[in-house]
Each structure stands twice: as structure tokens, then as C-alpha cells.
């Protein structure tokens, strides 16, 4: 197994870059990070809509949550992959397909995290802000959200872990991510399948476990337990 690592480590980490597109672990982390970042504004909007007093905002948001959580991420990927080209006029590459699908998914899950965060702030805070004469928007901005966001930090990190795992689905549409590269290595080496796939698992494990521990440390430092019972399980699809 050591010589496997020795021969292929660079390929595994960055794919064919710079002689080709970026791949491997670097691609996985970049894709996940980028997707999560892009999802944040949408996630915030979703969370606010879900906790809004106005039905016109709350119902569509709730409907969207039930829809997206009720179907596999892979299905969203397939919809994007097969249909976006006919809508936009040109073929979407694998990276952008995965990115769009992940943003759709993460926005909904982040929205739920934001919602939990907002609902976790004691109701007296909102009341006293309004009693001072602050409008709803200002009360949210200056009083509720700052407190909510702080408690959401561990859940955010766990969502990052979920997203990293979700990027593996790119394999199915041919994205040169970590899993794809591993399979390429396997076809080249051919006789060491267990080792290759164990190494693949180990890579994900180091990445994800490391981040989970970081989230756990964050949770402890913030001095409060988050409301979700089991962070990685509550964070969303298991892909």
C-alpha cells in the first residue's frame, strides 16, 4: 500500500493539474467550499423566510424544503445535468453541474440550520428589541441574527463535512473528483483494489473526521450544545 501512495499521491491530490483540469482531493475540497459559500446567502434567505410571520414567504419556503429534502441529491444532479443545457443553450460541464446541484441542496439545509439558530434565540430578545421601537428587520439584523449565527457555527462546519461527502456523487457524471481518481488508479493498477478503496476511504475519513472534531471543539468553546442530537446525521443527506 505504501508504494501505491508513493506512486500516485500527487495524482490523487490534484488530478492531472497542471497538464489537465484540477482533480482529486483538491477538487473535492474546492467544490465543497465553493458550494457552501455560494449557498450561504440563499440559506440565510431560506431561514428568514421559514421563520417569517408572512405566509406568502413561509409557505413557498416550506414547500421547497419538503421538495428538496424528499428527493435524492443524485436526482437533483441528474435534473441539472440533463436539463440545464436545454434551458441555457449550452452544455454544462460536470463541475458546474455539481456546483449548482450542491448549492440547491445546501441552501435548503443551511436554511434549516439558520431556522434552528433563529428559533434558538430566546423570544424575550425579539420582544425587548421591538419594545425599544426597532422594526422587525432591524431587530433581526442587530439582535437576533448575531446571536443565532454564533450558535450555528458548529452546524455550519458539519454541513461542510456533508457537502464534502456529497461531492463524491460527481463520480457518477464523470467529474474527476477523489473517488473518480481512485477508480482511475484502480484500473491502472488492477490488482490492488482493496488497498485503493481503503485509501480512498481513509482520505475521506481524515478530511471529514478532522472537520467533525473541529466542529466539536467549536461547540465546546461556544459553551452551548447545539439542538441537533447527532451533528453529522442531522446535517443532511448521507451521500
Amino acid at each position: 500500500m505504501i508504494d501505491l501512495i508513493h506512486t500516485y499521491w500527487l495524482y490523487f491530490l490534484v488530478g492531472q493539474y497542471p497538464q489537465g483540469p484540477l482533480g482529486g482531493v483538491a477538487l473535492t475540497v474546492l467544490l465543497a467550499g465553493f458550494a457552501l459559500l455560494l449557498s450561504m446567502p440563499f440559506g440565510l434567505a431560506m431561514g428568514l423566510a421559514r421563520t417569517s410571520g408572512r405566509r406568502a414567504l413561509r409557505w413557498p419556503a416550506t414547500g421547497l424544503v419538503y421538495l428538496v429534502r424528499g428527493i435524492p441529491l443524485l436526482l437533483v444532479v441528474f435534473w441539472t445535468y440533463f436539463f440545464l443545457p436545454s434551458v441555457t443553450g449550452h452544455k454544462t460541464d460536470q463541475f458546474n453541474t455539481m456546483l449548482i446541484a450542491l448549492v440547491v441542496f445546501d441552501s435548503v439545509y443551511l436554511g434549516e440550520i439558520v431556522r434552528a439558530g433563529i428559533q434558538g434565540v430566546p423570544s424575550g430578545q425579539y420582544e425587548s428589541a421591538r419594545a425599544l421601537g426597532l422594526g422587525h428587520g432591524r431587530a433581526m439584523r442587530s439582535v437576533i441574527l448575531p446571536q443565532a449565527l454564533r450558535s450555528m457555527l458548529p452546524s455550519l462546519v458539519n454541513q461542510f463535512v456533508s457537502t464534502i461527502k456529497a461531492t463524491s456523487l460527481g463520480y457518477i457524471i464523470g467529474l474527476t473528483d477523489t473517488s473518480f481518481i481512485a477508480t482511475q488508479i484502480n484500473t491502472q493498477v488492477f490488482t490492488k483494489a482493496p488497498q485503493v478503496y481503503l485509501l480512498l476511504s481513509l482520505t475521506y475519513f481524515i478530511l471529514c473526521f478532522g472537520l467533525s472534531r473541529f466542529a466539536f471543539a467549536l461547540e465546546r468553546r461556544l459553551g452551548r450544545r447545539t439542538s441537533s442530537p447527532s451533528p453529522a446525521a442531522a446535517a443532511g443527506p448521507a451521500a
Partner: peptide, 13 residues
């Protein structure tokens, strides 16, 4: 109108 609550409700942040 000033309002003072039983639970103070100061903004902790």
C-alpha cells in the same frame, strides 16, 4: 413607551 421586562432581556452580544 419604555418597557422593562421581568427577565431583563439585555442583548448578550
Amino acid at each position: 413607551i419604555g418597557f422593562v421586562f421581568q427577565q431583563f432581556n439585555l442583548f448578550p452580544h
